[in-house]
């Protein structure tokens, strides 16, 4: 068998190696491409990055277990490390610090950004997954950075992302952000007054443009004055308790859940509130409806009917009726479930 000469031709083979958690096989595919003359940046962006997206989707559709997803991600990280080992270049430009925001564990996308920046001559420090703000800021006080690139894959972390960006700005270091957590088009980054890059090459272009880096859009957060976000966060535990009691009332089978299923249910009930809170923070109901759409995929592929979710949204809507924005977002979530339920009809 001859080695594939393009990332597209190697893709299926590479994904098989990820599925088998076969580190040396996956590294072999990537290094063969490099040997065939494919630039490292293309291997990263056309092989490793799309494969990782596939991995996430397979987990969402319940085709892969969480353990398989983690193993595949680990293999991808080793592939990135192997590529880095083969393309070592002395940095000629300033330092860029790349990190995941606190609580964010999806480290591979920012790792790819870090590698692309490194390939373009920057001195890159990758601080890894879930970096506490205090750690990042103390790093910036110690090591002068040209810019900080922060990644956030899940929008529930937007308030943390906002605080972290503010902390970096107080250290007078320009910040850019990226990742799906800011919306597919970066609209939540814009709302929070952050510079957003859609992908690694765009991030590389942005850090190279000092003027663009200093042109920060203003944050538009006047809506926070209604305190709905703060109240929801403060009442989270009580709301989850109430929703659990309501669920046990409506669906008696849930009373017999074992601890693991109960943990999962409590976690889901909390998640709904976390996404609702994030939607309130950026004042965008589409953040919540996008989450509901995703949750339906995850739940139905695991045998949980969408109707259970609708009842919970209704319960939250009733409890939160004195919060007009939250209640409105919950209504939109329920409307989405109603329209999604019809064509499926099973």
């Amino acid at each position: 068998m001859t080695a594939a000469r393009t990332p597209a031709a190697a893709y299926a083979d590479y994904l098989d190696h990820l599925a088998e958690a076969d580190e040396s096989g996956a590294i072999g595919v990537a290094l063969d491409l490099l040997d065939a003359g494919v630039p490292a940046e293309r291997v990263l962006l056309d092989l490793v990055a799309p494969a990782q997206e596939d991995v996430g989707e397979r987990w969402a559709r319940n085709e892969w277990s969480v353990a398989q997803e983690h193993a595949a991600t680990h293999v991808s990280e080793r592939v990135v490390a192997a590529l880095a080992g083969r393309t070592r270049a002395a940095p000629t430009r300033g330092r860029i610090v790349v990190a995941c925001i606190d609580g964010e564990w999806h480290a591979l996308p920012p790792r790819l950004v870090a590698e692309v920046l490194r390939l373009r001559g920057w001195r890159v420090t990758f601080l890894g997954a879930s970096v506490p703000a205090a750690h990042l800021v103390s790093y910036l006080h110690r090591h002068d950075a040209h810019a900080v690139a922060l990644a956030c894959a899940v929008p529930v972390r937007l308030p943390q992302a906002h605080r972290m960006v503010e902390a970096c700005r107080r250290a007078d270091v320009p910040v850019l952000v990226g990742g799906r957590g800011f919306g597919a088009d970066g609209r939540w980054a814009d709302r929070l007054g952050m510079l957003w890059a859609p992908d690694a090459p765009a991030a590389a272009d942005l850090v190279a443009d000092a003027r663009a880096l200093s042109r920060v859009p203003p944050a538009r957060l006047d809506h926070l004055a209604d305190d709905e976000y703060a109240a929801l966060v403060a009442r989270r535990a009580e709301l989850v308790d109430g929703a659990l009691a309501d669920l046990r009332e409506r669906v008696p089978a849930t009373r017999a859940y074992d601890r693991a299923r109960l943990d999962a249910t409590v976690s889901d009930l909390g998640h709904i509130l976390d996404f609702l809170a994030a939607a309130l923070y950026v004042d965008d109901g589409s953040l919540f409806t996008e989450f509901v759409r995703w949750l339906v995929t995850v739940l139905t592929s695991r045998g949980v009917p969408a109707a259970a979710l609708a009842a919970t949204l209704e319960h939250y809507g009733g409890v939160l009726r004195e919060f007009p924005r939250a209640a409105g977002f919950l209504d939109r979530g329920r409307a989405l479930l109603a329209s999604a339920a019809e064509p499926v009809g099973r």
Binding site: R78, A84, R118, V124, T125, F126, L127, V131
Partner: peptide, 12 residues
């Protein structure tokens, strides 16, 4: 496989 450059003492 060598560790990537430039990340001494990181949280990884």
């Amino acid at each position: 496989v060598p560790a990537p450059a430039g990340q001494p003492g990181t949280s990884r």
